[in-house]
Computed example of a mutant assay.
Amino acid sequence: MYEKLIKDIQKKIIGNEFKIKISIATILSGGHILIEDLPGTGKTTFAKSLTAAMNLEFKRIQFTSDLLPSDIVGYTYLKNDNFVINKGPIFTNIVLADELNRASPKTQSAFLESMEEKTVTIDKETFNLPNPFSVIATQNPSDLSGTSLLPESQLDRFTISFSLEELNKEQRIELLKNEHNNLDINSDFKFDQNVNEINKVNVNRNVIEYIDNISEHIKTNYSNTHISPRCLKQTINLAKSLSYLNSSKYVTYQEIKDVIPYVLRHRLNIVEKKEFYSFIDEVLNKVPFPDGK
């Protein structure tokens, strides 16, 4: 089933097969995705194709320097002597925060409550967001003009982050033929049914201990790095979703090793992006499995 879902998405997205798969797992686990890359590399197309294939409601917010929090969450206005709530575009299943780091910190903070609590407060009244709800945010590299760094409190709310793969010559030619852009995505995917099955995936104590050991190793050897309990919980939930996509009824060490680079990529500011994966390989090689296997 998931092979078909991935192939449906690849009608629009060339390559990036595992990143498609882990993005599906992230949304199934209720998490959020951060895609960092240069302009024009297909970040928005990736998000829209993923949402269409999963049959979820989608809205896009283009972030600019003059965007206000009320443009995202909504506002109240007076109509016939009564105050009326006008809900913003955040009330959807998947919201695409396009070029999130082009907005002011005040506007970026409008996502903090929704990403953690799955609620939105408008003029002291709190509303539940639709279920499921996930944020897919894109950002340009921080050294480009007109961008500002995302605060750690917001970065930690994203479950995974990645950049899209650079296409080889044949893939670029296929893209330039424009055939993928003309294909529609027709999918029979049912979200609730799959989430119920994910909840049945078992996580052994040894696997949980392995995750905690990785966290302790990083904190012990790199004291200026913060690995939050939220991060560890996200890792478990994401690993369960990925195990389900792999047709497994329990989480293995391999699922943990597969998701860790994506979970930690935006949380570790102690290493350069180009050195990150060699750093993660070193950590995973030094942390033994709890049962000695």
Rank of each mutant, 00 (worst) to 15 (best):
E3G: 12
L5M: 10
G15T: 10
N16R: 01
K19S: 04
I20M: 05
I20V: 11
S23I: 04
S29R: 11
G30T: 13
L34Q: 09
I35P: 01
L38T: 12
P39C: 03
T41D: 04
K43N: 08
T44W: 03
T45V: 15
A47V: 01
A47C: 02
S49D: 03
L56Y: 07
F58R: 02
I61N: 09
S70C: 02
V73M: 13
G74S: 12
G74Y: 09
T76G: 00
Y77V: 05
N80M: 08
V84K: 13
K87V: 07
G88N: 08
I90L: 15
N101Y: 06
S104K: 14
T107D: 06
F111H: 01
E116Q: 15
K118Y: 11
V120N: 01
V120Q: 01
T121P: 06
I122F: 00
I122N: 00
D123E: 15
D123G: 04
K124E: 12
E125H: 07
P130R: 06
N131C: 01
V135P: 10
N140I: 03
N140D: 02
S142K: 10
S148G: 05
L150K: 02
Q154G: 02
R157G: 08
F158I: 04
S161Y: 06
S161E: 11
E165L: 12
K169M: 13
L175A: 14
K177T: 14
H180P: 02
N182K: 15
L183D: 06
N186Y: 10
N194K: 14
E197Q: 15
I198R: 07
I198D: 07
K200N: 14
N204I: 11
N204H: 14
N204R: 14
E209V: 12
D212H: 13
N213W: 00
S215F: 00
S215V: 01
E216P: 00
H217I: 00
N221W: 05
L232H: 01
K233R: 13
Q234K: 15
S241W: 06
Y244T: 03
Y244E: 04
Y244W: 06
L245G: 08
K249C: 06
K257R: 15
D258P: 03
I260S: 07
I260G: 08
Y262V: 02
R265Q: 14
L268G: 04
N269C: 03
N269F: 13
N269I: 05
K274A: 11
E275Y: 13
D281P: 00
D281I: 00
D281W: 00
N285D: 14
P288Y: 04
G292L: 02
K293L: 10
